[in-house]
Design a protein around this nucleic acid. Structure first.
Ligand SMILES: NC(=O)c1ccc[n+]([C@@H]2O[C@H](COP(=O)([O-])OP(=O)(O)OC[C@H]3O[C@@H](n4cnc5c(N)ncnc54)[C@H](O)[C@@H]3O)[C@@H](O)[C@H]2O)c1
Ligand SMILES: NC(=O)c1ccc[n+]([C@@H]2O[C@H](COP(=O)([O-])OP(=O)(O)OC[C@H]3O[C@@H](n4cnc5c(N)ncnc54)[C@H](O)[C@@H]3O)[C@@H](O)[C@H]2O)c1
Lengths: 233, 233
DNA sequence: TGCAGCATGTGAACTCTTTCACTAACTATA
DNA sequence: TATAGTTAGTGAAAGAGTTCACATGCTGCA
């Protein structure tokens, strides 16, 4: 920790390094998707107003998000589509290809293995693991299923950077520990439990039940109260 | 102080009805999961401090979340596990079973159909749709695949309340329009595009690519800068 | 019954995020 | 070259969400 001498009585001259928020990063992903579509349509420039139209965002939001990373637009004109796309990709770390492994080739795991969008966006699934003898050694959509027993060695050998965890919750933590010991610092998990990991490992959870419960909450409130608002979308 | 009897029987004069945040609802889901596990272990009471340990939450956060909905604990003791579980389930609208339909029985769709946790948590998958003639009429994990042509009629007939959309992005919007016209007000979508829906329809998006890009952003920053902080977790 | 200890519930402070409002800067046109 | 029109960039204000801090009120025990 530490770093920054900040904290004195200085009223912050310039919003120093700045902390980038969770939501800003997610929005960058969305801008990127839209820019890809625009580029395919040969659109040359786009204004913050048009970019904002991809959802219920405001032009100011778009400009602020981008301003954290630099000045990419031209006043009076807008942003150059192709250029901005490259910039955002760079910000998100997508100027390189990433090596992934899928652990657990069950319902979710196989869905991931077959997903065409991943390689298109820079994610190469290099390894697939399971502990089921019937699956190990078999080809799964072109990928040989490896034995979970060799998890650490194979992750290291293939220099895997990100792992998608699609195993039962009961074994998610123990597998996580091995994954972390293999130097993997990015985990996308589908198990509905909290994973304990060191500070420098990033975990994102894809929790469908949680999202469904968000919907039931919203629907229940709305059924009882007024038919709109509550700010949920 | 406390709330003096203003006019009417309106509670709280200051902090008005209040808006419940997105994050509070998600945390309630997580509390609920933990409470289920605790109940299974015959734990009788739990303090906000212990509840907070499920992640990087603070006891104050837990208490604040719950306080939006009432006073469920006992000072000096904590919260009664079983009782709190029922209360939170009620808040989230889980005191009833919900009728779901899955649209698109491809990679993701079949994963959802086979997922055991859904029925356990109150979600009954009643219908499954596809437009592929080879799939229509066949049984998929016990469920007959319906023809997408009959979407609206079947949704209405079965009084479907929530739909999970697992179709290609290219057809997601048109299917959404039909779904909405059938009175469905909750949608969980896996297509990586923004869906246009009326105000009173709630949409939640499960976007794996976005989460992966969050990881690549975090990993890139960390590779370049200091090996910790930046507030990302 | 009284006392010590403990954990809730909550206004208030604080921090983070979004929106506002204005200036700077470029394009297009005449 | 001047001028009108447009839009990015950005401090500052406003709005949300989180954390603090403490009084309140319960439990358990002597
Ligand atoms: N299927 C869904 O729609 C869905 C929805 C939400 C959450 N999830 C979660 O995603 C995870 C995976 O779900 P699923 O439906 O794919 O389950 P699944 O049972 O179909 O697949 C799990 C796979 O993991 C393998 N496995 C089990 N133990 C292992 C081990 N120790 N090492 C390696 N592999 C092991 C199994 O052999 C199996 O292939 C679970 O945690 C589940 O709760 C699934
Ligand atoms: N598979 C993944 O891991 C993954 C990851 C992220 C996002 N997604 C997204 O989830 C969605 C589904 O992905 P998938 O991998 O399951 O795709 P898929 O192609 O395996 O399945 C799509 C299914 O939808 C059906 N379908 C197509 N058009 C239809 C129509 N008009 N009406 C009804 N059914 C129709 C197809 O027959 C097929 O069964 C896509 O939008 C995809 O981008 C998938």
């Amino acid at each position: 920790m530490t770093d920054t001498e900040n904290k004195s009585e200085a009223p912050a001259k310039t919003r120093t390094p700045k902390q980038i928020s969770d939501s800003t990063i997610h929005r960058l992903s969305r801008y990127l998707r839209l820019l890809g579509a625009l580029e395919a349509d040969s659109v040359k420039t786009i204004s913050s107003k048009e970019l904002a139209s991809i959802k219920r965002l405001t032009p100011a939001q778009v400009r602020k998000d981008l301003s954290f990373f630099g000045s990419f637009g031209t006043r009076g004109l807008g942003y150059p589509v192709s250029e901005l796309k490259v910039k955002i990709a760079g910000i998100l770390g997508l100027d390189k290809r990433w090596r992934l492994a899928i652990i657990g080739v069950g319902n979710i795991g196989s869905a991931l293995v077959g997903h065409k969008e991943f390689p298109e966006r820079g994610f190469d699934i290099r390894l697939v693991f399971d502990n089921d003898q019937r699956k190990i050694g078999s080809k799964h959509k072109g990928l040989l299923v490896s034995d979970i027993k060799n998890l650490k060695e194979e992750l290291l050998a293939h220099e895997i950077e990100i792992v998608a965890l699609a195993v039962p919750a009961s074994v998610a933590q123990e597998i996580t520990d091995i994954v972390v010991s293999a130097g993997v610092r990015g985990i996308l998990t589908f198990a509905p439990i909290h994973l304990n990991t060191p500070e420098n490992v990033f975990v994102r959870r894809e929790d469908m039940t949680m999202e469904l419960e968000y919907l039931t909450f919203a629907l229940s409130i709305n059924a009882v109260k007024s038919p709109n608002d509550l700010g949920l979308s």
